[in-house]
Write a protein that binds this DNA or RNA. Structure first.
Lengths: 288, 288
DNA sequence: GGTAACTGTTTATGTCCTACGCGCTTTAGT
DNA sequence: ACTAAAGCGCGTAGGACATAAACAGTTACC
């Protein structure tokens, strides 16, 4: 579950001058450390720590990742961690790049649109698998080797598009943003559904999801709270357009024909990208 | 700075049955409290607390908002706050809705696209003004009176579009997501630029932004770190597409003609929405 | 062999959030 | 008017957290 076959930190090019002005966490990310060997062999390693932290986050969420708990998980005292990681912030940075390790290799030979779609979907799926990633502060998401590899795949999908690098970067950045938002919304609406089922069943807040009826969770309408608020509190005079739109609301969400939420978002954004590419003359007008 | 002229909680309709299954925080948000009047007049109020918390967050960021500091700001002991707010979580919920109070009223008479664009821009601007909003957990963003009002305006922009409510909601949700992402990226890249200037000037991490050269911050290229990592660590064999794209990279970001990042994102997303509306036959094909 | 570097640990500090219980103030009900 | 209860603000205290500083043991180089 943790064999690191992905890009190893490139052999440190020696003649690149002194360490440039990069955040310390980035340097650690790329294995840029003074290879001093004097004291005892470290029994612990940053990789172990990161792995333990990720296991914890997978099992109990990011909030469960405290230095104390991670230390306990690897069998050392909390302060031992600080020999391998400068602090909790850096640990989060390392976790954030390690997540990108498990992103798949995209199939070759896709056109730009199919490629970007696969790229986006894979990331959303990852966000749903590891919701704690969405709780990371953006400052913990720095360009590490694995994330860079993933970026490389995105540029690969745009290989045939003739556009300056910065514009490609803007497009990819937009998609990356969308991914975060989409996954966040899904995770959060799932949490809300679980919470709602708990409330309706009169169970305490802490009840683990595993004790609830999965069907009930599935059935909990995504906008149930929204709707309930509208019905209970909102005065039609204050929210005229909402009332007008929802007057015909059936309660059942029948999304656009044959499309789930994820598809809807991806399609809309990619349609926008396509329009942009057309406008820039980067793809022919007749392409599907 | 805090006159609440916006929608007051609608007069509690008495015959609506018992309090339905809604999160307690939502009920507080709509002023749904048992109007018991027995004890002393409260000297403190939830509104004061929220205001103080927001001032603190504006000045020093969300991390500075602790119960202790808020209590200090309003001149009471920390525990006094718990009489008016169930806990910190609820305080964050109240803050999140209060933020939406300061969103502007959109000009009437805009077509759907101009309306949604204004709606989106206003929210992004708010995110840049109050970056702490972006640090709130999504679970703190619940439908309160002010946020609902803002939703109403979005539906107002789509007034003339003939589409079921759930599809409109999906569109608006997509934009809301985009807003969060866009603002987050801007705020974070600003922070990164500040940090970079600090590093290059050799100043300690805590140096306040006000002591730095604004021009230098402005000049710090947004992708500087990315580029530096590429140049320093990444092996061309591992990241072929990145290297290919950036081989002609000039270092200067000359975004798409006459468009800043925000415009780029909005345009792309709205183009996607427009394509969707066309496909659904909700707007005529010949419209600009 | 001496020493310097490096390991994991112990101890301690400061900051959080908040459960619990105390006195005091006000109002409802008689 | 009197009483009881409800509501207010506060003090104490406990538990969790990140991490600074000093310490003892271990290894490699000179």
């Amino acid at each position: 579950m943790s064999t690191d076959t992905a890009p190893e930190p490139a052999e440190q090019p020696p003649g690149n001058g002194p360490t440039p002005e990069l955040p310390a966490a980035v340097q650690r990310l790329w294995g840029d450390a003074a290879p001093r060997r004097r004291g005892p062999k470290p029994a612990l390693s940053a990789a172990q720590i990161v792995q333990a932290a990720m296991d914890l986050a997978d099992a109990e969420g990011l909030a469960a990742v405290s230095m104390a708990r991670v230390a306990e998980a690897v069998g050392y005292t909390p302060m031992a961690l600080y020999r391998h990681v400068s602090g909790k912030d850096e640990l989060l940075v390392l976790m954030s790049d390690a997540v990108a390790r498990d992103l798949p290799e995209l199939p070759a030979g896709l056109d730009w649109r199919a490629g970007l779609e696969a790229w986006t979907r894979a990331q959303i799926d990852m966000g749903l698998d590891r919701p704690w990633f969405l709780d990371l502060p953006l400052s913990a998401v720095l360009p590490g080797p694995h994330r860079m590899r993933w970026m490389d795949q995105a540029f690969g999908a745009l290989r045939s598009i003739d556009l300056p690098a910065d514009e490609k970067l803007a497009i990819i950045g937009l998609l990356a943003q969308h991914v975060l938002g989409e996954a966040r919304v899904h995770v959060e609406s799932h949490r809300a559904a679980v919470q709602r089922v708990r409330r309706e069943a009169g169970l305490p807040d802490g009840t683990p999801e595993s004790e609830l009826d999965p069907a009930a969770i599935e059935a909990a309408a995504p906008y149930a709270d929204f709707e309930a608020v509208l019905a209970r509190y909102a005065a039609p005079a204050v929210y005229p357009h909402l009332f007008e739109s929802f007057s015909t609301w059936t309660g059942t969400v029948e999304a656009a024909p044959g499309a789930d939420d994820v598809t809807f978002g991806i399609t809309v954004v990619l349609d926008g990208v396509e329009a942009y590419l057309r406008r820039r003359g980067a793809i022919p007008d007749d392409e599907s």
